[in-house]
């Protein structure tokens, strides 16, 4: 309750408008928010606060009325969120692919194999696999992949980190284990990770990020005007260009592909 009141005052305080975004760790870990938000704050004179957690937690924050906008990647749960009346619209913004990464020593045996063969070999050979285990978008995709491939992920080899993407990748790196990651987080930390990417682009691995404003009918205190401004900044304004070019300079290719033409 106090948080809601707090947000209420933040939003309507006469000096400065604010926008609270609940987002996924992969968007923060890559450094995208650091370049995406300042121009928006400056141009619209809106202070943005973001909370970077797993998609499951981000949805929960929004469900409890603690965010104005969510920027997440789990289509199924996003649609539920809107169906239940918590969100207004779902705007697909950008995409990349999930990757299965793992130690270099298995490259010969597993590289270029179909996705399900890779997962199957991990399980049958009991290669260590580090799961996010945190109900994030990546975690729910991982569960879907095991299910689709009819592989049961359980046993000594299957560990749950309960942490964000980069922590999970670091654990996989230390233990030389496999993990499912989004491309952006993996590429932006590739230098520190001695992990190899095993998968090709596969429709099962498509990773779509979208933004959803929280429904003001549900929570009258949400800053819906500010949220709409942010959406048009991404979909029609400078924000799209920033995303489109993000990572080009440092990694040779953009980390996210925009899903629309400006």
């Amino acid at each position: 309750m106090s948080i809601i009141l707090f947000l209420f005052f933040m939003c309507f305080s006469p000096n400065e408008a604010t926008l609270t975004i609940a987002t996924t760790t992969s968007v923060e870990d890559t450094g995208l928010l650091e370049v995406l938000l300042p121009p928006f704050e400056k141009h619209y004179d809106i202070k943005v606060k973001y909370i970077a957690v797993g998609t499951g937690q981000a949805l929960r924050l929004a469900r409890d009325g603690n965010a104005d906008l969510i920027f997440v990647h789990d289509k199924e749960r996003e649609e539920d969120f809107i169906k239940q009346g918590y969100g207004t619209h779902r705007h697909e913004v950008m995409q990349n692919y999930f990757l299965i990464v793992g130690p270099e020593k298995n490259v010969e045996a597993l590289e270029h194999k179909p996705l399900c063969d890779i997962l199957g070999s991990i399980a049958s050979n009991e290669f260590l696999f580090i799961s996010r285990g945190d109900e994030s978008g990546t975690h729910s995709r991982e569960k879907l992949l095991w299910k689709t491939c009819k592989v049961l992920p359980s046993g000594e080899w299957y560990l749950e980190s309960g942490s964000g993407m980069i922590s999970t990748l670091r654990i996989a790196n230390e233990k030389q284990a496999f993990a499912l990651t989004d491309t952006a987080t993996f590429l932006s930390h590739r230098d520190e990770l001695q992990l190899h990417s095993y998968t090709e682009k596969d429709s099962l691995l498509l990773n779509i990020y979208s933004i959803i404003p929280v429904n003001p009918d549900k929570y009258p205190h949400v800053c819906i005007k500010e949220a709409e401004k942010f959406i048009s900044y991404i979909l029609k304004g400078e924000g799209g260009t920033i995303i489109k070019n993000f990572g080009k300079e440092r990694y040779g290719k953009p980390l996210f592909q925009m899903m629309w033409k400006p």
Binding site: S161, G162, I171
Partner: peptide
């Protein structure tokens, strides 16, 4: 520790 379930949690 890394908060790994069953190991360091």
């Amino acid at each position: 520790g890394g908060n790994i379930k069953g190991e360091t949690r």
